[in-house]
Structures are given as C-alpha cells and as structure tokens.
Simulated scan of single mutants.
Amino acid sequence: MRVPKRERQRQLGISLEQNPFLTDEELSRQFNVSVQTIRLDRLECGIPELRERLKTVAARTMEAEVKSLQSDEVIGEIVDIELDKRAISIFDVSEEHVFQRNGIARGHHLFAQANSLAVAVLDDDLALTVTSTLHFLRPVKAGDRVIARAIVDKDRSNDKRTFVEVFSTVENETVFTGEFEMYQTTDQSRRKS
C-alpha cells in the first residue's frame, strides 16, 4: 500500500533532515516510488538536489571550522565536522578515479579522502600524518559514493600526537579503514584545559 503524497513528502523531509546524504535513488527505494516521483516531491517541497545540499553544508563547514587545510586541499566534500572530535566527508567516484581495465577505484583516492579528513578534523593550523595503518576491504567502483567518518581517539592521544580513525563506507558497507597518527604543532595538554 502506497503512502499518500502529502505524508510521503512529510516523511521525505524528515528522512533528509536525519540523513542529508541520501540520494534520489535510495529515497525511491525507501518510499517504493520512482526516482522521478522523488524529484517531483523534492521540487514541490523546495528541497534542493543532493549536490546542492552538500555544497551548501560543505561551504559553511569549511568557512566556519577547518583550520589545517584550504577547501581545495580536501579530497571529497566535508559535510559535517566538530573539531578534535569527528568529521564526515563524501567522495563521488567517477571514471577518472578508476582503472580503465577493471573499473575499480585506485586506492590512493580512498587514502587521500581519509587522510585529508584526518588532517581537517584537527583543531590546529598545522597537522601532519606521521604513520597510517590502512585496510582496503572491498573494491570501490565508478558511480559509488564513499562516505568517510573520522573519529579522534582522545584516549590514545598525547601532547604532540593525535590518533584519528577513519571508516569509509559505500551504501553502509565498510570498504576502507585507516588509523592515522597525526603530529600537531599545538600542545594537546594546553588545549584540553
């Protein structure tokens, strides 16, 4: 049984508030309607397309928060950040990011997204990667949307070293994990107080 149009539009708005990363295709599966119906619902409700929603959030985030990188130095788009705690970025894999022979994303793009997010999440003018431990868990292909989540591990961090864990997913399946040991110029013990 289909949900009435007004109720579907109300639920659509709620879904996008809870998860602004949802694509029209994912929403069409969620509501069991066509992608075109979702687009029309968004238009009627004044909800911009995903790309525009993400650009707006990313621009606000970069202007307000990130200290260690310029916006053109970030791989992917940062869509949420709380300095020294957590951050989220989105990277859309296109044909230019994959091997022509098999269509699988080149690993350095996934690493670059995770590494730039690990740098950006730190509340410092200078943050550098000291070491990293990486695990590629499954291939990523052109057309995939990679959502990377960075979490600062305060328990393991000390005066000049901060540990950041990054988990990258495609459609809620983990495809990459990384642990980054980061050097910062600011003494961590002074910032905690």
Rank of each mutant, 00 (worst) to 15 (best):
S34W: 05
D159G: 09
I151S: 06
A148D: 01
K67H: 11
E73G: 00
D84M: 05
D155W: 05
L50R: 06
G103W: 11
I88K: 12
E25G: 12
V93Q: 01
L50W: 00
L137E: 11
K154G: 04
A58P: 00
Y183A: 10
E25M: 14
E52V: 04
T129P: 12
T23K: 01
V140R: 00
K67A: 07
D72P: 05
T61C: 05
S28H: 10
G107T: 11
A114S: 12
S94M: 14
I151A: 03
I75D: 01
T131P: 00
A118K: 03
S189F: 09
T174N: 03
L22C: 14
V79M: 09
S89T: 06
V93H: 03
L83M: 13
M62N: 14
T37S: 14
P139C: 06
H108D: 08
V140Q: 00
G178Q: 06
V140H: 08
M1P: 05
S89D: 14
Y183K: 06
L43Q: 14
D123V: 10
E96V: 15
L110V: 09
R156G: 14
D41K: 11
G107Q: 11
R138E: 07
H135D: 07
R2L: 05
V79P: 02
V35N: 04
N102C: 11
P4V: 09
E73D: 05
R86D: 15
E77L: 15
N19I: 02
S157K: 01
Q18G: 12
R86E: 09
T169S: 15
S168N: 05
R145T: 09
F180K: 02
N115P: 01
L22T: 10
E17H: 15
L126H: 01
E82H: 09
A150K: 01
I75F: 07
E65T: 10
I147F: 00
F21G: 12
K55V: 13
R6H: 11
I75E: 06
R51N: 06
E26H: 10
F176A: 05
R101V: 07
T37F: 04
A58G: 10
R2Y: 13
L40G: 01
R106P: 06
S193L: 13
Q9C: 08
T129L: 05
R191P: 08
L54T: 02
E77M: 06
R190M: 15
R101C: 13
V93N: 00
R60W: 04
V130D: 09
T129M: 13
D92R: 15
A105M: 13
P20G: 01
N172I: 11
F31L: 07
T133L: 14
Y183R: 10
L134Q: 03
N102I: 04
R191I: 09
N115C: 05
R106Q: 15
L128C: 15
R60K: 09
E95S: 10
F167K: 07
G103P: 04
L16E: 09
T37R: 13
I75S: 05
Q36C: 08
T169P: 07
F31H: 02
I47T: 02
P20R: 12
D155L: 10
G143D: 01
V164R: 07
F180Q: 00
R39F: 04
T56P: 04
